[in-house]
């Protein structure tokens, strides 16, 4: 009856989303008066999950699971859910988790709801609140099946520490063969990804050209942030498509989003509005983004950003 959380790892290291789903799972388990079991695949160090409310970790280590495969991973999670007799399975909003969730839902004959932002409003009937219409609205959805899969929106519930400890149990699921073969992987190394970043620094057409991105990257560096851009910036080839954020690009749900030289078109805002705090730097005081922002500087990016970099460096130095 345990709540099952899929705690994702990357090259052996648990991802931040793993601690979020653990925290969320603990809150749901409290509502139901039950415990939390985590399933982790090829993660090196899982006892730390205890600090976020996990009671038991099913640890799977297998060289066959080295590269992510949605179908096979879904089957591993299904076997864990059956072993634990879990009625509720919680996953994060990472690209991989969102990839495997619908396959898992079919395997478990479960109802699946994505982008959930709070603990269930009610557990019977099981009702959750989620983001819909690309952050323009919330939808209250009921899951009517015995087994339920909840996809938790990044950064929405956050990390909640609790002083428990997690026991580890080796788990050896049956691993199916796959007819899907990863030929090559191309990772931008040593860069914070938009999906995992607490802070995102984003540039728009106001920056005039790709040659001016040095200061965006430097600002991101001093903040430990990921870089992003508006759609025309990627369409013009100033930045890679993978940096395009917004309704038709990547969604952003960071703690802090800094928009520089971005006007704040409705499609851009829709995709980044889930970020908690938004700062806008724009020469035009009438730019629509100011209406959606928490803090703003009306000014020229070419003078404001370099100054801001120096100030933040000084601030970090005295921290």
């Amino acid at each position: 009856m345990s709540v099952l959380v899929y705690t994702e790892s990357d090259q052996g290291k648990l991802k931040k989303g793993a601690f979020e789903v653990a925290s969320y799972g603990k809150a749901v388990a409290n509502q139901l008066g039950t415990t939390v079991t985590a399933i982790s695949i090829n993660a090196d160090e899982t006892s730390v999950l205890g600090n976020y409310g996990v009671d038991k970790v099913l640890t799977v280590s297998s060289s066959e699971l080295e590269s992510f495969n949605a179908k096979i991973y879904a089957s591993v999670i299904k076997q864990a859910a059956e072993k634990e007799n879990s009625q509720i399975v919680i996953i994060s909003s990472s690209a991989d988790s969102k990839y495997l969730a619908p396959l898992l839902a079919v395997d478990l004959q479960a109802g699946y709801v994505s982008n959930v932002i709070e603990t269930p409003i009610s557990t019977s009937p099981f009702t959750v609140k989620r983001n819909a219409f690309t952050n323009k609205a919330f939808e209250i959805t009921q899951i009517n099946t015995n087994v339920k899969i909840v996809g938790v929106s990044s950064n929405a519930f956050g990390l909640v520490e609790s002083n428990g400890s997690a026991t580890a149990e080796d788990f050896s699921p049956t691993i199916e063969a796959s007819n899907l073969k990863v030929e090559s992987v191309d990772r931008t190394t040593n860069k914070v990804t938009i999906a995992d970043a607490d802070i995102v620094v984003s540039g728009g057409r106001g920056l005039k050209g790709p040659e001016n991105w040095g200061m965006i990257e430097e600002l991101a560096d001093v903040l430990g942030a990921a870089t992003a851009c508006s759609k025309p910036v990627s369409d013009l080839g100033w930045r890679p498509h993978s940096e395009h954020v917004g309704q038709t690009g990547k969604p952003v749900a960071s703690n802090l989003y800094i928009a520089i030289g971005i006007s704040g078109a409705i499609q851009h805002l829709a995709g980044v509005n889930a970020s908690k705090v938004k700062v806008v730097i724009n020469t035009d005081a009438e730019a629509p983004f100011f209406k959606a922002a928490d803090y703003g500087v009306v000014g020229d990016a070419f003078t404001v950003v370099p100054k801001l970099i120096e100030k933040i460096k000084a601030f970090k130095a005295q921290q």
Binding site: T127, K129, T141, I143, N144, T145, G296, V297, V298, T303
Partner: peptide
Amino acid sequence: NSKTASIKFEKPAPKGAVKLVPE
């Protein structure tokens, strides 16, 4: 049969005014 049902919608609360900081 559907497995989930949409019950109700809500709109986000209106945003407070931006705090402007002089450059």
